[in-house]
Nucleic acid binder design. Structure first.
Lengths: 246, 246
DNA sequence: CGTATATTTGAAAGCTGTCAACACTTGTGG
DNA sequence: CCACAAGTGTTGACAGCTTTCAAATATACG
């Protein structure tokens, strides 16, 4: 038997889908493709033809400003969906680019409609995932708007760690992020120089360690406590069973 | 005949729903209630029992930090939905509070399921609205992460103006926002003192005018140009008709 | 009229960005 | 294999933006 895809792993927790839905879901993502690091998966301004499921690897979702600056809006991790509701928009508003080699399941955007018509429970599960994504964006707003740089960085690190856990990563120590300082600064809304300063500070406290192109989180406990991390915005244990049958 | 509710006004543009769907939609929001300014509509940490449609009035959606600070994540305007996918979560992650008197349509959260099962086109329309909301959050991230205070404020003003237009507001000049400086600072991720300085600056340039508890935008053209506002993230003219029948 | 909530000011401290170089790594082509 | 280019990481100094502190003034509300 093969291991569960991270997507199925996540929606399983919902306890909403029956075996028929799971077959439907598994079939959706049968079409798997590989991407190198640094590839554009969807591009701002363009119509999106596919919906992707991240099986392995990392990407970033960002917007580019008129002055050439960019802001990373969210990281895209295994178990995430890329462009879920894109078929109902004429163009994408952000770019998604791989930052590590990736394995992506995909299905044609037009098929989203079939899901809504033929598999309402699965459609609801997708809405659930979109809702989680929105919660993560909200927390990103709070992080950038109301936290100072060191705390901001620590908070992001812990979020990424916790999100990895959601789809089955269990290692308790030494989480490796395929991220460099430039990426970090664009995610945190800081200059790359200041990012470096903060970075060095955390490193001096032995909270993180650096390797070319990656960051290792060494002391999650201290990072979490300095970040005042409240995980309630991340995926709950189970679905709110408001007593309905679908 | 009565005027269209702002919600129906918006989803009409989708050109996805048939008359049956519209009846369904209209029935959903028949139950209308009134709120004073300053009322909590949904509260962070609590289970949400209803889904609300804003017919009139403004609210803010915010998160409170451990240190008592708060960050407004988004403004809630006529035509918006509050807590759309809340039935699939055990608790709300943010608080929504009215900042003006409001008129709210609502239906029980449990009914969301009926929509997904019995009115897939309407469910898709809701997903479309959720997608728009997510785009607005993305832009808020960019605004806070990569724009300096004056530009940041101008950009928010223009966004609010454009969003009002989406549900039928047509006045070209003198848009009135039911907002004070404290609210503004929490939305922009600035201290209230600095917000005041920037505020005063825009006022000195005759771009805005202040009245107790409200702000009037007087020169939208100049505000928009200084904000480098790119409206593509706001609702498109029409649905991407990827040639499917639902 | 008194209290709480907003707004306003000035000054000082502190955080973050910008500038200008330099070092290091990696990949490419000669 | 070396040289070079491009991208990334590093430093120090400095400017500038933003926050904080403290206190005064309005304004709203009961």
């Amino acid at each position: 038997m093969d291991t569960l895809s991270p997507f199925v792993y996540r929606i399983k927790k919902l306890e909403l889908l029956n075996s028929e839905d799971f077959v439907f879901a598994e079939n959706l993502i049968k079409n798997v493709g590989i991407r190198d690091s640094g590839m554009v998966i969807i591009e701002s301004g363009l119509l999106q033809e596919s919906i992707f499921f991240v099986q392995e690897g990392w990407a970033v979702r960002y917007k580019t400003l008129e002055d050439g600056n960019r802001q990373i809006v969210n990281f895209v991790l295994p178990g995430d969906i890329i462009g879920m509701f894109s078929p109902i928009f004429q163009h994408s508003e952000h770019t998604v680019e791989s930052i590590s080699p990736m394995k992506l399941g995909s299905f044609p955007a037009s098929q989203l409609i079939d899901i809504f018509r033929d598999a309402p429970r699965l459609a609801l599960a997708l809405a659930w995932m979109a809702g989680q994504d929105e919660r993560i964006l909200e927390e990103q707003i709070v992080r950038i708007g109301r936290r100072r740089s060191a705390k901001r960085m620590a908070h992001l690190f812990i979020e990424l760690y916790r999100r990895l856990r959601l789809c089955g990563y269990t290692r308790e120590q030494a989480i490796i992020l395929p991220v460099n300082q430039l990426l970090l600064s664009d995610a945190l809304g800081l200059s790359h120089i200041h990012t470096h300063r903060v970075f060095r500070e955390l490193e001096n406290h032995q909270l993180i360690e650096r390797f070319p192109g990656r960051i290792v989180l060494q002391n999650l406990a201290v990072l979490a406590s300095m970040a005042d991390f409240d995980e309630s915005y991340l995926e709950p244990i189970s679905f709110a069973k408001t007593s309905f049958a679908l």
